[in-house]
Nucleic acid binder design. Structure first.
Lengths: 348, 348
DNA sequence: GTGAAAGCGCTAACAG
DNA sequence: CTGTTAGCGCTTTCAC
C-alpha cells in the first residue's frame, strides 16, 4: 500500500486524471464503460483520495468541527450521546468529525475556519451571553448552536425545549393535586457560567407555576453530590408547607444524589413527596428507584443539529429551515409522583 | 476576514513566501528583524495557514485519529475521560483530533491513513483477536493501542495493568483474612466481543488466587443492571461458604447495580461481606456508599498513549520506548472491605 | 463523452 | 540569512 494517486488510477484505467475525478464526484456524465474501468482501477489500487489535496483544490474538507465542553461536569451530564450521535450522523453523510474543546473559546472557532479545517461547525455549551456566538456568526462557514443564547446573532439553534419541559413539570404536579413545588436549582458551575438552559428552564418554570397557581421555591445553587443534595432535602423537609409537595430536579447530575439523600432520610418519593427529574429515559429507568422524568433527548437534538448543518451546507430547493429548532420532551411516569387523590383531580 | 494566504503575508512583510513558511516552522534561522515583520504581518491579517495545503505540501496533517467505541455501554464505562484527555493533550502539542467510531472497523483505519487524514492513530476497544490490529500494523502511519490484544503485531500498547489489579485485589482479600472470593464477571456484551481486558483480568485473578490459596468463583456472564446484579448477589448469598466472603467487581458499570442489590437485601459491604471494585476513584468516592476500589486511570493511560504517539512521530535521541506501557492501579480503602480480625493477620 | 492544463496554498530543495 | 522554484494531488475551467 504505497499511497496511490488519482494519476495512477487514471493511467491504469487508460483515462485522464479529470475523468477519475469526475467519476468520484459525479459532476459529469461518464459512460458506463469508462466508469467501470475507473472504479475497477480504484479498487485494484485500493485508491483513497488525498484529503488535503481535495480540500485545497475543491475548497471542501468534508469535515465538521464539533465544539464540546470538557469541564469536570460533562461526564455526569451525558455528553457522550451527543458526540456519538453526531459522529455517526456525520459518517452517514460522508463527513469526518474534528473534536475541539470549548475551553479554547473563540480561538478554536477561528482556527477551524481560518485553517479550513472543516466546512461547518456544531457548537455546544452555549452561555447566555457568549462571545463565541458573535465570532461564529462572522465566520465564513455555517455554525449550528446546540443551545440558545440570548442573542443567536442569526445562527441556527437546536436544543431541547426547556420551556415545554417546565410546563410539563408544572402541569403534572398541579394536575395531581400538589400544593407546593420545589426546584432543585443548578450548581454554581452552571449558574456562574450562565449556561443558557438554566435560565430558560427557571424563567419558564416560574411563569407556569404562577399561571397555574402553584407555590414555587427554587433552591439555588445546589451543588451536585452528597452534601448539596442533603442540604436541599433537609431544607425542603424543614420548610415545606402541609400538604402535597412536589420536587423538580432539572439538572440530571443532581438526581441520583438527591434520591440517595431521600433514602437516607427514609423519605419515599411517590409516597411522601413527589419527584420529577429531567434526564434521559435511560438514566431514569436505570436509577434506583426509577423516577418519573421529562426526557432529555440528546440523540434527537444531535440528529437535528446535523440535519440543519447539512442543509446549511447544501440548501435544497424546498422551503427554508426554522432558525430555532426545539425538541419536545416527553413525560414518562415511573411512580415517583403521587397520584391525584380522587377528590382533587383537576383538568390540565 | 477574507482568507489571506502566506503570499499576502509575504507581500505585506516584504519577504518571500518561503520566508513566511520558515518563520512558522522554525526550520531555518531567521533574523530577528524579518521574523518580527513577518509575525506582525500575520497578526495584522489574522493569517491562518490552510491546513489542506500544508498537509499536501508538507505531508503532515497535525491531526491524530482517535478510534473510540460507541456501543450502548460506553456511556457507563467512562469513555469520556479518555476522549477528553487525549483532546487536551493533543491540543497542547498542536494536534487536532479526528474522531472515528470503532464500528467502522478496518475500513476506518484505511480511510484515515489512505486519505492522509491524520499523522497517527490511537485505537481503543481492542479485542483479543482483532483484525484491525493487523491492518493497523500495516499502515504507513504509527498506531498506538489502548489495550492489549493477544498479538500486538509490533504495535505499541498502553493500558491499565489488569494483572496488577488482580494481584492487588487478591492480596487485599487474603491479607484481611478472607476465606473465599467471588468475582462478578463481565456482561455478555464484553465477553462476546472478547474485549482484551476481561481475559487479562480473569486469567490473572485466577492465578493469584491459586498462588495465595484463596478459593475463587467467577460468576459469568453477569449483565449490567438490576436483574443481573440481583442474580449475582442471590447466588453469592446462597452458595458462599461459612466465613469471610470477598467480592471483586472488575467491570465498573456493574458496581452500582451490585451495591443496590446488596442494599435491597440489607447486606452491608464492609460488615457482611467485602467488596472491591475496579473503577475511577471519582466513581468510587461518589458512590453510595463509597467503596474500596482499585483505580482505573483513564487520564493517565490517555496521556501516556499520547506521549507514545508523539514519540513515534518524532523519535527523540534518547533510548527507545517500551512497546507495552502498563499503568499501575492503586488500591484505595473506603471501608467496604472487612478489616482483618486481629488473630488472622497474615503478611502480604 | 473525454482530455489538457491551470491552479488551490503551502513546503522544501536548490541557489546564492 | 534570504529568495526562486518546483512540486504535493486534487478539481475545474476550457477545449474538443
Amino acid at each position: 500500500m504505497a499511497a496511490f494517486t488519482s494519476k495512477d488510477v487514471a493511467r491504469l484505467a487508460g483515462v485522464s486524471q479529470s475523468t477519475v475525478s469526475y467519476v468520484m464526484t459525479g459532476k459529469r456524465q461518464i459512460s458506463e464503460s469508462t466508469r467501470r474501468r475507473v472504479l475497477a482501477a480504484m479498487e485494484q489500487l485500493t485508491y483513497e483520495p488525498h484529503a488535503g489535496a481535495r480540500a485545497l483544490a475543491g475548497r471542501r474538507t468534508q469535515v465538521v468541527g464539533l465544539v464540546v465542553p470538557f469541564d469536570s461536569m460533562s461526564e455526569m451530564t451525558g455528553l457522550l450521546p451527543f458526540i456519538e450521535t453526531i459522529a455517526s450522523s456525520a459518517r452517514a453523510n460522508d463527513y469526518e468529525v474534528l473534536l475541539v474543546t470549548a475551553d479554547e473559546g473563540s480561538a478554536g472557532l477561528r482556527r477551524l475556519a481560518g485553517r479550513a479545517l472543516c466546512d461547518a461547525i456544531i457548537m455546544m455549551d452555549i452561555r447566555e451571553q457568549d462571545e463565541r456566538v458573535h465570532v461564529a456568526a462572522a465566520l465564513p462557514i455555517p455554525v449550528v448552536l446546540v443551545g440558545m443564547p440570548d442573542d443567536p446573532a442569526g445562527l441556527y439553534c437546536v436544543d431541547l425545549d426547556f420551556d415545554a419541559a417546565a410546563r410539563i413539570a408544572v402541569d403534572e404536579l398541579v394536575d395531581t393535586g400538589h400544593d407546593e413545588a420545589f426546584v432543585i436549582g443548578y450548581p454554581a458551575a452552571v449558574t456562574d457560567r450562565r449556561l443558557n438552559f438554566a435560565g430558560r428552564f427557571l424563567r419558564s418554570v416560574h411563569r407556569y407555576a404562577e399561571v397555574r397557581g402553584l407555590p414555587l421555591t427554587v433552591l439555588e445553587p445546589v451543588e451536585v453530590g452528597r452534601a448539596g443534595a442533603a442540604a436541599a432535602v433537609d431544607h425542603i423537609l424543614a420548610h415545606r408547607r402541609p400538604g402535597r409537595t412536589g420536587v423538580v430536579v432539572p439538572y440530571n447530575a443532581s438526581i441520583r444524589p438527591f434520591l440517595h439523600a431521600l433514602r437516607a432520610r427514609a423519605v419515599v418519593p411517590g409516597r411522601d413527596l413527589s419527584l420529577i427529574g429531567i434526564s434521559t429515559d435511560h438514566q431514569a429507568e436505570d436509577s434506583e428507584p426509577p423516577y418519573t422524568n421529562i426526557s432529555e433527548e440528546p440523540r434527537d437534538v444531535s440528529r437535528r443539529a446535523m440535519k440543519t448543518l447539512l442543509w446549511l451546507l447544501d440548501p435544497g430547493p424546498g422551503v427554508g429551515h426554522p432558525p430555532v429548532d426545539l425538541v419536545a420532551p416527553r413525560l414518562t411516569r415511573r411512580g415517583t409522583v403521587m397520584p391525584a387523590p380522587a377528590s382533587a383531580v383537576r383538568s390540565s
